[in-house]
């Protein structure tokens, strides 16, 4: 008789599979981070390129660009697996569906959120941030992008299978992302000004932990409904 697979094993298989697929088709996963860099580049062009003035606008520009780019990336989260029946097989695998979706969200974050967090300090320096702000910005974006991926998983689950659901997806996800934006932008601003940014970073971390515990359950319910 066959031995059942552990849930850790299942999660690691999903990560392996998604990374393998991403490396075979890299173009898709580079789009969101390219989008992020382009949007942050547009701000100096649309505003005043004087660095001291850009510096004041840098946190807002970074976070709005990060929010938009992660909503853009959500399209890749469940779409393919929903279309070819893979999500149905996840639901019938006997493993916790929420857990498998958390693994999928994790691989999605590795492919879109992590590059974003790494690119953000570069973009920040371009917007006039001092090098001393880099660690703070990196941590803020790391935490923020995780919580955006988790919130996004709920929205992507709800709009899975809706044709041209992109605009709807942003309408659902962006209001939910307001706390992340507020705390993240504040932490970034404090890092740029050279103040200790611990307070907003703690709040951001709290949001992320909260998201990890509850968002997969909501996403699982949402995807199940969308699969019917």
């Amino acid at each position: 008789m066959s031995r059942p697979a552990s849930s850790l094993r299942a999660a690691s298989l999903i990560l392996q599979r998604d990374l393998t697929l991403a490396f075979r088709r890299p173009g898709e996963w580079l789009q969101p981070v390219a989008f992020f860099l382009i949007v942050t580049m547009l701000f100096p062009l649309a505003l005043d390129p004087e660095l001291s003035r850009l510096r004041a606008l840098a946190p807002g520009a970074l976070w709005v660009a990060a929010l938009l780019s992660s909503v853009l990336a959500l399209e890749f989260l469940f779409r393919e697996d929903g279309r070819d029946g893979t999500l149905e097989q996840f639901a019938l695998s006997g493993q916790s569906f929420a857990w498998l979706l958390l693994a999928k969200t994790a691989s999605h974050w590795l492919l879109t959120g992590l590059p974003l967090a790494i690119a953000a300090p570069l973009a920040a320096v371009g917007l006039g941030a001092p090098a001393s702000a880099i660690p703070g910005i990196l941590v803020a974006l790391l935490l923020g992008s995780v919580s955006l991926s988790l919130l996004g998983a709920i929205g992507a689950g709800l709009t899975l299978g809706i044709r041209r659901g992109g605009a709807l997806l942003s309408l659902l996800v962006l209001p939910l992302a307001i706390p992340t934006l507020v705390f993240g932008a504040r932490a970034t601003a404090m890092a740029i000004q050279g103040e200790p940014a611990a307070a907003p970073l703690y709040l951001l971390a709290a949001l992320t932990v909260f998201g990890i515990t509850l968002a997969p359950l909501a996403a699982a319910a949402a995807v199940r409904i969308s699969l019917e």
Binding site: S2, P4, A10, Q16, R17, L21, R24, D84, E88, S93
Partner: peptide
């Protein structure tokens, strides 16, 4: 359950497809 959609990934080989999909349920 085998539905209309085969739940196979075009960018994976046949063996990889089986490894990832069967592996969710049991060791193989």
């Amino acid at each position: 359950y085998l539905g209309h959609d085969l739940a196979l990934k075009g960018d994976l080989t046949a063996a990889e497809n089986l490894r990832y999909s069967v592996g969710l349920r049991r060791q193989i």
